[in-house]
Each structure stands twice: as structure tokens, then as C-alpha cells.
């Protein structure tokens, strides 16, 4: 599946967790175990480099691909 990703340094500001700011409803926060985070980031970057150059970036997003398991299709 196609995944759009970007690196955010100031997540607190983005999620509006500062005092008095409303939390944007369209954003969700998910804490990753470190190993899964590292593995997913490196997979996304690697796949990004495999894409045609014109499709590697979409507006402010980088584009990556993750393989997802689909019962029936991925099974032998």
C-alpha cells in the first residue's frame, strides 16, 4: 500500500497538546515500539528511493510503499 509520510520535529505543537489549543480532529497519535518504528522508517525510505523520481514526493509528503499481508492473496 502507498504511504505518505513526513518527519515532524515539533509533534506537541502539531497535536495541539499545548495549553489552550484545540486538538485537531483529523490527527491521531500512535506510539510505536522503537524497533517497529526504525524498521518501518527504513523500509519507507528504501521504497521511496525505488519509486520513479516524479512520484517520490507529493506536495509536502514523501511517498513510500509498505507490503501488507492480505489473507488469501499472500498465502501460499
Amino acid at each position: 500500500m502507498k504511504v505518505f509520510f513526513q518527519y515532524i520535529n515539533d509533534t506537541a505543537n502539531l497535536l495541539g497538546s499545548g495549553s489552550g489549543t484545540a486538538t485537531p480532529l483529523s490527527l491521531e497519535e500512535l506510539e510505536f515500539p522503537e524497533k517497529i518504528f526504525n524498521a518501518v522508517v527504513s523500509t519507507l525510505e528504501e521504497r521511496n528511493g525505488m519509486l520513479p523520481i516524479r512520484t517520490r514526493i507529493f506536495r509536502e509528503w514523501k511517498v513510500g510503499i509498505l507490503n501488507r499481508f492480505e489473507r488469501g492473496r499472500n498465502e501460499k
Binding site: 518527519y7 515532524i8 520535529n9 509533534t11 522503537e34 524497533k35 518504528f37 526504525n38 524498521a39 522508517v41 527504513s42 523500509t43 525510505e45 528504501e46 521504497r47 525505488m50 519509486l51 510503499i65 507490503n67
Partner: peptide
């Protein structure tokens, strides 16, 4: 949030559609 270094041991599946 800092971006950690990618793990060298990560397994990557080369997609059929992409030739490296």
C-alpha cells in the same frame, strides 16, 4: 522527535514492480 538511524538488519521485500 528525532529520526533514528535505520536498522541495518531490516528485512526489505523487493516488490515485483520495481527493479533495483
Amino acid at each position: 522527535m528525532t529520526v533514528p538511524q535505520p536498522l541495518s538488519t531490516t528485512q526489505v521485500d523487493v516488490q515485483d514492480s520495481v527493479q533495483t
